[in-house]
Amino acid sequence: MRFRGNKQFASAVGLVLGLLCAVEAAKVNKHKPWIETTYHGIVTENDDKVILDPPLIALDKDAPLRYAESFEVTLTKEGEICGFRIHGQNVPFEAVVLDKSTGEGVIRAKEKLDCELQKEHTFTIQAYDCGEGPDGANMKKSHKATVHIQVNDINEYSPVFKEKTYKATVIEGKKYDNILKVEAVDADCSFQFSQICSYEIVTPDVPFTIDKDGFIKNTEKLSYGKEHMYKLTVTAYDCGKNRASEDVLVKISIKPTCRTSWQGFNKRTEYEPGTGSLALFPSMHLETCDKAWMCSCLRKWLQR
């Protein structure tokens, strides 16, 4: 019985020694942390949360095995991840460890991001474990991984017209495919929010229409006798449905149709007997639509 008890005691001592050796072996920081080689992230401007693909997780082969619940607290920290380090000049991001034992971390913005100033950021990142030791010599770092982060736009700007006022002149009695074009621009950085999706004539009950590109045309033949000038208020919308910060004024003048006719004579002339001769039409002249044509005809007539 004594031999058997000694054998059990020896086995227990061997188990304890084996566990102690395992613990001591775990204290040796043999391996570097490992992370992915490339990360792609998205962050919305004016926000600090970066969504990474793949997630930021550092692994270390020095992470100890879980022998028993009672032994976990005695195991060394070489396999834990103590931090992430970002490399680059003026990088507006930081990396934070969420859980040292799992190596899980996040990247977040340190300051307000502006897509209009910079749409993308690229930098490198490393993970380092907790095996520093007294002189810091035992700390090991991972390789440097490349991080690409895209800054998503928010629709913070409204369309602005390039001109304060637009003017055009049309001839009465004609329908035009294009009278003039108004144009607005938007300062947002993304294609969606910087594009002008539509224009609108705000003034009601006018014989004009405007298309999505800003071209204005009349919907019916215009009459100088009815209206000499139309004043239209036009606005614009970007593709995020933001309206122009200020509407624009459009003035369209109507020019009467020219007709050749005699001008400068009175339909009624009064004459007093005995006063001598009286010129009936001293200022009468022929008004033509094409003065160049009239001069050409007069020149040919004088050359006969």
Rank of each mutant, 00 (worst) to 15 (best):
K251C: 10
L19R: 01
A63N: 12
N29A: 15
E69D: 13
V185K: 00
G105S: 05
N242F: 00
Q118S: 05
H148Y: 14
R243K: 15
I107A: 00
L98W: 00
V23M: 03
H228G: 04
N152S: 12
T124H: 03
Y166E: 04
L298T: 10
A26N: 14
E272R: 12
Y176K: 04
Y271H: 15
D129G: 06
E287R: 13
I196D: 00
D238A: 01
G274P: 09
D290V: 03
K164F: 10
E156W: 00
S70K: 04
A63K: 13
N46V: 11
G103H: 03
E72P: 01
V185Q: 01
K7A: 14
P64S: 12
Q8R: 08
I171S: 06
N218W: 09
K231V: 15
L232P: 05
I42Q: 09
I86N: 04
P256A: 02
L19W: 04
Y230R: 08
P54K: 07
C115E: 07
P54A: 06
V13S: 08
E104D: 03
D247T: 10
L278E: 13
D129Q: 05
A26P: 00
R85N: 09
E163S: 09
K231Y: 09
P134F: 11
E80T: 12
Y199H: 01
A68W: 11
Q192E: 11
N152G: 09
